[in-house]
Every structure is written in structure tokens, then in C-alpha cells.
Nucleic acid binder design. Structure first.
Length: 256
DNA sequence: ATGGCTACGATCCGTAGA
């Protein structure tokens, strides 16, 4: 099974990139973030024609998440249960026995801001939710845009970013708390190229300079981690005209 | 020099992203 995550930064703008990429990469399950469109405008038919069923939790202008899969999506759940939130950031579904949670974690804007406080509160709720999901579903995959670069090697210029939002101590602690529920950062289970990133700023030719962050992640429970044979970042879509600022991350999980 | 793009929904600028 190929499981992918991609923050498309407007599904309306990126639909062509997405369908081309689905045909090229042939993922079985795809978690999408930042759809920036409401459910009524979700391109269900176009994605069905590409061979994918979908579950969508959309929102106009901001946020919005979806899961695509070639196999049926069951037990679809919207948001973090018990955490009241206007922002559509989480959707979960069971595909082929695997519980898939798609997340678009808050940006946080700036350390100390209201949005930063919201981000930390949100991560606490996510951790509790994932701990409960872990207990219910042995095969759990959590994929999405976490808006946290876990370590300095996930940052193009750690000195420049020191203490900033996405790398601050409390955010990295919140990230580690997710791992402490018994999940593995699948990307780091394998040898990877130096300076591997999943997001590059549109400004200052960030992609050309490889001035990026690794903030898009796939977390796997131990039974899935044991069957994971590789994780890679696909930079091809970032080279296209009018790209998303994020690029897909793909995990290959064997069925044995 | 704290900016530089991009998307969106509102106008021809403000908000947000990261």
C-alpha cells in the first residue's frame, strides 16, 4: 500500500497537478490538506474518474482536509471528537483495515500569539485523540501537515529559525508527545538525503535555494512501521508551474 | 530593511500561510 500526504494549498488551483500526480505516483491512499473549498465544491467526480473514492471535510477559504482511496472508506470521522473547533483540520477513515487520520495542524503564526496558544491547545487535543485511536486501531497511520520541524536537521538554516514558530521548544515537545502515544516518524526510519524538506517558501526562490522545512509527516503505529519499506519526498510537483508550496510525502507499506 | 510570493475574497488592499 502506498500512503501519501500532500498540502495542495487550494484544491481548485491544484486539481490538475493532483490528478497528474495520482496517475504518475499511483498512491492507494492520499491525505490532502488546505483544500480551501467547501464540501459542495469538492471535485468528487473528477477524482472518481481518476480512480479514487473520497471523504471530504471542507471549508471555504481556509483549511479543509480530505482522504482519497482506491478502496472504500469506512467509519469516516470529522474533526477531533470532543474538541470544539470551527476550523476543519482533521478527517479520519478506515481503508483496508488501516485507520488513516489526515491532519492539518495549525500554523501558529508567531510564538506568543493567540494562534500559537491555539496551536499548542490543538496539539494537546490531537495527542489525546491519537492515544485513543491507537487503543482502538492497531494499524494506525497519521499523515498530514504538522507545521512542526521536529529537529534542526529538518530546517535549512537552524540558526535563522532558532526559537521561531515551527521549531520552538513547546512545539517540538508537542510533536514528541504525539510520538509518545506509540507512533513512529516513518521518514526517519530510513536513511535519507541531507537537507530533505517538504515545504519551501514561495518568496526568495526558496525552492531553488532548497531553503525549506520538513513539516509534512507520516506517523505509523508499530504494526505498520514494521511493514513500512520506505518513505520518500516527491519533489516533482514543486517544479511545475504554479505549484503548491508543499510537496507530497509517500510511505510504502507491504501487505504481508 | 522583518520584506520578498500565493490564494482568497474583497476590491485595487487586507488576511493568512510558514
Amino acid at each position: 500500500m502506498k500512503l501519501a500526504t500532500w498540502n495542495v494549498n487550494s484544491l481548485k488551483v491544484r486539481l490538475g497537478h493532483l490528478t497528474d500526480w495520482l496517475a504518475a505516483a499511483q498512491p492507494d491512499v492520499v491525505c490532502l490538506q488546505e483544500l480551501k473549498l467547501e464540501d459542495a465544491k469538492f471535485p468528487r467526480e473528477e477524482l472518481a474518474a481518476a480512480g479514487y473514492q473520497s471523504a471530504c471535510f471542507g471549508q471555504k477559504t481556509y483549511n479543509g482536509v480530505a482522504i482519497l482511496a482506491r478502496a472504500p472508506l469506512a467509519e469516516v470521522e470529522f474533526g477531533i471528537p470532543g474538541f470544539a473547533d470551527e476550523q476543519k483540520r482533521v478527517i479520519a477513515a478506515t481503508v483496508g483495515g488501516v485507520r488513516v487520520v489526515c491532519v492539518y495542524c495549525p500554523n501558529g503564526q508567531a510564538v506568543g500569539s493567540d494562534k500559537y496558544e491555539y496551536k499548542l491547545r490543538w496539539f494537546t487535543a490531537l495527542r489525546d485523540y491519537l492515544a485513543a485511536e491507537r487503543a482502538r486501531h492497531p494499524e494506525l497511520a497519521v499523515a498530514g501537515d504538522f507545521n512542526v520541524a521536529p529537529e534542526d536537521r529538518d530546517v535549512h538554516d537552524p540558526k535563522a529559525w532558532e526559537g521561531q514558530v515551527h521549531v520552538s521548544g513547546p512545539e517540538r515537545s508537542a510533536w514528541r508527545a504525539l510520538l509518545e502515544t506509540g507512533l513512529v516518524d516513518a521518514f526517519r526510519s530510513f536513511e535519507q538525503p541531507e537537507k530533505s524538506f517538504s515545504w519551501w517558501d514561495y518568496r526568495m526562490m526558496g525552492f531553488r535555494r532548497n531553503a525549506g522545512l520538513r513539516i509534512d509527516h507520516i506517523l505509523l503505529s508499530p504494526p505498520l512501521s514494521a511493514r513500512c519499506t520506505g518513505v520518500s519526498i516527491d519533489k516533482a510537483p514543486r517544479r511545475l508551474e504554479r505549484p503548491s508550496d508543499h510537496t507530497p510525502v509517500i510511505a510504502e507499506i507491504s501487505n504481508i
